[in-house]
């Protein structure tokens, strides 16, 4: 046995990060109004008539699947809300432009394509519903 100090330090730091990450996971954060509009052309698909949920996913991401199922389910019965699912890997230019750092990341766009919020990680059902309701 040489030293247990590195193990203690690493596990303490990893725990702190783990708790911090868990608190932030999936929380919908409002966006600053400086964002420029995201167009249908950039996304390769028409926007929703009131709200568009743009989800970025990758193949190496388990919560992407649950997020996709959740958002599809939530938007199924809402005519004015659209869910767009984008494979981040094949849209790297867009990923850079929109500052997507990890998957799943979901952007909430208003009718003009302005980003009004984003969730990094799998969002909670109620949070998505209230975010959708808040968009005029």
């Amino acid at each position: 046995m040489k030293s247990l100090v590195p193990i203690v330090v690493i596990l303490a730091m990893a725990s702190a990060y783990g708790f911090w990450h868990r608190v932030r996971e999936g929380r919908i954060q409002g966006s600053k109004s400086k964002a420029q509009a995201i167009t249908a052309q950039m996304l390769g698909s028409e926007l929703g008539s009131r709200v568009t949920l743009v989800q970025f996913s990758s193949a190496f991401c388990t919560p992407c699947r649950t997020t996709r199922v959740l958002l599809e389910q939530l938007t199924k019965d809402l005519d004015d809300v659209k869910h767009l699912h984008i494979d981040a890997e094949s849209h790297l230019e867009l990923v850079r432009k929109l500052h997507i750092l990890s998957t799943p990341t979901t952007l909430i766009l208003d009718r003009n394509g302005i980003e009004v919020g984003r969730a990094v990680g799998a969002p909670k059902r109620d949070d998505v519903l209230s975010a959708i309701a808040a968009v005029r």
Partner: peptide
Amino acid sequence: AAFNYCLGCEMYLL
């Protein structure tokens, strides 16, 4: 193990 952390989600795109 402890937090069910998804390494692929955070690192792959970066």
